[in-house]
Amino acid sequence: MDDLFAVPRGWLESFGEIVKFCARILGDIASLRVFKYFGEVLRQAGILIVSSTLVIWGLVFIIGLQCGIEGAYFDRSVGVPAYAGVFAAWCDLRELVPLCFGYMMAAKVGTGIVAEIGSMRISDEIDALEVMGISGVTFLCATRLLGSMLVLPFVYLCSIGAGFFASYLAVVQQIGDVSSGGYFLIFWQFQNPPDVLYSLIKAMAMAIVIVLVGCYYGYTATGGPVGVGTATAKSMVFNIVSVHVIGMLGTQLFWGANPRAPIGG
């Protein structure tokens, strides 16, 4: 029986460790300790803008095109081509933009954090920091999280713009079953301003989890370069699952009781 529960017990233990570690990082931000290293926060924010923004927008743009094209052809097939804007208003904003943002965050930012911090761990750089009287968790992890929190809301709002723009291009300019005015009439009818906020909350929850998980796996990496590789892979698995779980829970929470489409039943 012990063997039977060994694996789930191991998962629970790891999960508990991750939660404890994340609480430390969040504590560093809440207690404002991280502001001792505000220069590093700005540096991390800058790195995020320069190295990850375009690739996130690029992926969201492509998914916006896909959503627009498929929506337009589906609506044409059921005889309501003018309603193609529904797909952009719902599918883009509520599901696909947050998911694609989460995928790219996990693939580009999350793995990058694991690899960087993990390499620092195995080459004693984190120990060197600690010996200099600088907390590795605060300097390496809390600064990255705060940097992300400062930058990512704007990156995400622009991502929504990129997704919407791509869907508009596909539906109105490429397929052309509906006029620009007709498209926007339906597009705006099927969304409310709070939807953008909900979508933003979903994406930020994903981003925070991804950065925290990346920091955890990097900070606790052991076993040389192979260990860093394993930690990177593990973080990717954890993050992709988390992105979907957050996506599902967010949809249930924010739109589950929507009378126009009661997803929650």
Binding site: S119, M120, D124, E125, D127, A128, V131
Partner: peptide, 10 residues
């Protein structure tokens, strides 16, 4: 502390 490989920040 001088680490074995220096532990310089890469």
């Amino acid at each position: 502390l001088l680490f074995q490989d220096g532990a310089l920040f890469s």
